[in-house]
Write a protein that binds this DNA or RNA. Structure first.
Lengths: 202, 202
DNA sequence: CCTGGAACCTGACAAACGTCACGGGTCATC
DNA sequence: GATGACCCGTGACGTTTGTCAGGTTCCAGG
């Protein structure tokens, strides 16, 4: 029985590379290959893959959100999240989105194929080192709104920009930022943004 | 005549994937494969590859700097820079470092093999879209010192931190930051850092 | 030799930021 | 029905930033 695969990654090079290698593997069949997160759902509904390999960093929709949509729309398809950055928060969010597996790209190819087979068989796969880091570090200390403000702060320059984007008063934004800075042990906004990004909390 | 290849990329997955695909290609032989930029020079000196495939983002030493060292130490080895992010400044810096080619990872595998063959034959290869963007945008407007300050500002939280790291007075740092912000048309430090990063000027 | 640019520094100022204290409101839990 | 968490807001305070004007060195080019 061959395993039907969906590939989602914005990097054409690694997508084509993986396609070819999976073809050589014998028991894999790549039935869909997309470069954007918002194309995953439609492609999966059409091609009915057994396992979807989703990159976290993608235009349109990130892999974790795509995973959540797949769980609702194509429940038969199990998700394996693949990412460049081993952020503890990513793993947590992925698992909450119903992902069956989570691997960092910093792993050999054979580990990937083994993981896919395990996921296809109904199992779960998680990078052990990352799992330990996630459990040790715990969940995000940020409230949803604090995370929103911090996320917006990544691209907005001033407090006024953040307030405008979120339809809040500037004072409120400053309060959320202050709370986030304190919780993260940062010394100012940009350090807080960096820390939150490193943990995958935004 | 087979082309001897050196692979340098911090992502194990794409390195092993490329290794296997190159083996299948027939006229390629991967003679070295490293995960850190500071291992490139030694590996190249030992294995004498024809072409080195260097990722820009690597721990230890970035691919562009590794390219410059190779040019001095192993001049017979020609460098092909491979990167995830198509930043105009990267291309410029790569070419100034003596790279023979520059490709973004957002390209099919066949384009990569074609590029390697061309580079091995003594030619030069550059992503056309990126070349146009680079020429249109011109060189960095920042003085070396301004770029230093901006680079340090990425990881330092306060002006005092930057000043300490660069052995400058706080006033001087503020002046450089102010100049950089003005030149980049930014509204504050963090926006300036973002813009400079996007262009590959830091 | 003189000019210009880049590297440094100082001092001063307004604006933006981070903090604090204090309101209000909703909602789930006990 | 009280408690607590989260959501929003205000006002005030001190600190940090960004800007500007001024100065000193050094070095390359005309």
């Amino acid at each position: 029985m061959t395993i039907r695969l969906l590939l989602a990654d914005d990097q054409e090079l690694i997508r084509t590379a993986l396609e070819r290698l999976f073809d050589l593997e014998g028991d894999f069949a790549v039935v869909a290959s997309v470069s954007r997160g918002d194309e995953v759902e439609e492609a999966a509904a059409r091609t009915r893959p057994d396992v979807a390999l989703l990159d976290v960093e993608m235009p349109g929709l990130d892999g974790i959100a795509a995973c959540a949509r797949l769980a609702a729309r194509v429940p038969a398809c199990r998700c394996l999240i693949l990412t460049t950055f081993g952020r503890p928060g990513f793993l947590r969010r992925a698992m909450e989105s119903g992902a069956a597996g989570f691997l960092v790209k910093d792993a050999p190819f054979d580990e990937l194929t083994a993981a896919i087979r395990q996921v296809a068989a109904g199992g779960r796969v998680v990078d052990p080192a990352l799992a330990a880091a996630t459990l040790a570090r715990g969940a995000s200390p940020l409230t949803p709104r604090e995370a929103d403000v911090l996320r917006t702060a990544r691209t907005a320059a001033t407090v006024a920009d953040i307030a405008a984007a979120l339809f809040l008063s500037e004072g409120t934004v400053r309060n959320y930022l202050s709370a986030a800075i304190a919780k993260l042990g940062a010394r100012n906004r940009s350090e807080a943004v960096r820390l939150a990004e490193d943990e995958g909390w935004v």
